[in-house]
Nucleic acid binder design. Structure first.
Length: 594
RNA sequence: GCACCCGUAGCUCAGUUGGAUAGAGCGUCGGCCUCCGAAGCCGAAGGUCAGAGGUUCGAGUCCUCUCGGGUGCGCCA
């Protein structure tokens, strides 16, 4: 039990008092009662809309009800004053002693401060990254990886039981193409004299994935299989055997190598997922047929012909009969194909199998992080999950927008051919893991983002990574200077000397941390953590700078050991909350700036 | 053509899921280093929340329409 949200506590008090005032109202009447920090600090520490939201049912004028409620709230030991305001708000000013009492709470809880129960221990599966295992990760994958990882951390902090999952798309045409590409590098490793284009001409769909990263895979294939997968050829030395004899083997081998590479990339980014689910294995295990049978039992599958899309009919469109899922019964615009006209499964069908697998594992909620180009796919997937689970398992999809990389004021084009392909590893090597992670979270996921390689390493105020890290470094600097007093010692410090408005403003900010965590988790918006940390860092820097103008406000005062201890406690609590927030983001707090 | 996302200060973006007089950074202008770290801080100017209706005690937030930008639209994943 680590819920120390003072807003939730005062809200509960308010509801209880209101229930006494209005004994005839049912409990549900109070559901919309809120207790939140007012936008304008001059209104006090907290404000509640309680009188407004129950006035109608109570058949009373909001201002009158607010006045009666304020009178009772004012009598609470936590409350300094309570005043009705505006159309029916009640503004609360808290006693300093109550606020100050939160400092030892934060110190005692440590980084667990802010943990909540909004998730109530429900099991949630967060699937993210899920890049095709056909090459190294590039910056396009990076945002989803960071957002997904931070979101998973956030949900865990807010009380969900989280599984971090990677869905390996190892069953489609893409990995087939990877197999051919790896085989080409294998022939090269054997020393074939065949030209690349000559080989490409023999590959259905042409040779894709020509990047150099497959050269070691070709060499590894040679070491593992010798020349047994190739055919001796008088002209070229070695040439291609019929694909049926090697394609499965090579594909599997190559996918394995790609996944190793991707996992190394993810590790460099600080992302460690719990579960890697293979699409190919799900298919092999018959999950697709199982899901189809389940939907058929519920009468949700039929044979039919889809209408062409209105307005823009594809050139080669012709009506074909397909196996369709009644997605339109679950809020989608049209029914969606499960099988192509040749009878093989669509990607959607395999994804349904994937979701059946999740539901069978007992998750109460599903979350996905997808690129925005998959936005059109959300409704049908939600429809499928609703159908499979009988509407009991919600699926939330967080979409991440494109990241434009900029260097020297110029956009960096993402082109493999031009050699300006930016891999995730390049990015991390250039600016560091923490800067990558923080920056990716410094914007709402569904907003396009410019990633300026020069700016994220810039040491200035307009670089939020730096700004927050700098606050933490200053805090560590102060504590080191004071001989690093243990938190247990500071917990006992008398705090009555903390009366400076900037000190209390900082403390007020700290007390909002639990509700920030909860709200961000419910909204599935990890970027709010980054913004909170920026605000918190700002409050701290303000206080620090007061000490420049007024020596009596410095944290360490040789002549005032008592006041020093109190301030060190506040500073230590601030450091704790910053670390707590950075932990959600997966960013390492620094001891000093270098 | 249809669906989804978006439109907030000159620029980049927040806005506590319907709350009070819409905020922050950058940029601009004006101040502040004998100092526990000035890589910083304080102050000022800057707005028809794209536009028009609607819902209600209350709308940047919800609904409808219009304008503008992005993404997607059977046999790709």
């Amino acid at each position: 039990m680590t819920d120390h949200d003072i807003f939730a506590a005062l809200r509960a008090r308010t509801v209880a008092l209101l229930a006494e005032l209005l004994p005839d109202l049912p409990g549900e009447a109070f559901a919309r009662v809120q207790m939140e920090p007012p936008r304008d600090p001059s209104h006090g520490d907290m404000a509640t809309n309680a009188a407004l939201v129950v006035a109608k049912q109570a058949r009373q004028a909001p201002p009158r009800l607010a006045a009666a409620l304020a009178e009772r709230l004012a009598a609470l030991p936590e409350v300094e004053s309570a005043t009705p305001a505006g159309p029916g708000f009640v503004n609360l000013r808290l006693r300093d002693a109550f606020l100050l009492a939160q400092v030892p709470v934060i110190l005692a809880e440590g980084e667990r401060y802010g943990d909540g129960q909004a998730g109530a221990g429900r099991r949630v599966d967060v699937e993210y990254v899920s890049a095709n295992p056909t090459g190294p990760m590039h910056v396009g994958h990076c945002r989803g990886a960071v957002v997904g990882d931070a979101l998973a951390n956030l949900l865990a902090k807010a009380g969900w039981a989280v599984t971090k999952e990677y869905y390996v798309n190892d069953a489609g045409a893409q990995v087939q193409a990877l197999g051919y590409a790896a085989y080409w590098r294998y022939l090269q490793a054997l020393g074939t004299s065949m030209g690349e284009e000559a080989f490409a001409a023999q590959v259905p769909g042409g040779l894709q994935y020509r990047g150099e990263y497959l050269i070691p895979v070709g060499e590894a294939l040679r070491q593992r299989f010798g020349d047994s997968l190739a055919r001796r050829d008088e002209v070229h030395g070695f040439a291609m055997r019929p694909p049926a004899e090697w394609l499965g083997t090579v594909r599997e081998f190559a996918v394995g190598r790609m996944m190793e590479m991707i996992r190394e990339d993810l590790a460099a980014l600080g992302v460690f997922q719990d579960v890697f689910v293979s699409e190919a294995e799900l298919v092999r295990a018959g999950k697709l047929e199982q899901a189809e049978a389940l939907l058929a039992d519920r009468g949700l599958i039929y044979r039919g012909v889809l209408e062409p899309p209105k307005g823009k009919t594809p050139e080669d469109w012709e009506p074909r009969e397909q196996t369709l899922f009644r997605a339109s019964q679950f809020g989608d615009e049209v029914d969606r194909p499960l099988r192509k006209s040749d009878g093989s499964g669509t990607y959607f069908a395999n994804d349904i199998a994937n979701h059946l697998h999740k539901i069978e594992r007992g998750f109460a909620e599903l979350v996905h992080v997808w690129g925005a180009d998959h936005g059109g796919y959300v409704k049908r997937m939600q429809a499928a999950v609703a159908a499979l689970s009988g509407g009991t398992v919600p699926l939330d999809v967080v979409l991440t927008q494109i990241v434009h990389v900029v260097k020297d004021g110029q956009p960096v084009r993402m082109s493999k051919r031009a050699g300006t392909y930016v891999t995730l590893r390049d990015l991390i090597d250039e600016v560091g893991r923490d800067a990558v992670r923080f920056t990716m979270l410094a914007r709402k996921a569904d907003a396009q983002m410019e990633f300026d390689l020069d700016k994220v390493v810039e040491q200035s105020r307009d670089n939020p990574v730096f700004y927050v890290q700098y606050a933490h470094a200053r805090i560590r600097s102060v504590l080191r200077q004071a001989g690093d007093p243990p938190a247990g010692d500071l917990t006992l410090a008398p705090l009555g000397s903390l009366t400076e408005p900037a000190e209390l403003a900082l403390l007020r900010r700290l007390t909002t941390w639990p509700r920030i965590v909860e709200a961000a988790a419910l909204a599935r918006e990890p970027h709010r953590i980054a913004f909170f940390l920026h605000d918190l860092a700002s409050d701290f820097h303000v206080l620090w700078n007061k000490g420049r103008d007024d020596a009596t406000l410095r944290f360490i005062r040789a002549d005032e050991p008592e006041a020093t201890r109190a301030r060190l406690a506040l500073v230590a609590a601030t450091g704790t909350v910053i670390r707590s927030g950075l932990a959600v983001m997966g960013v390492t707090p620094v001891e000093e700036m270098r």
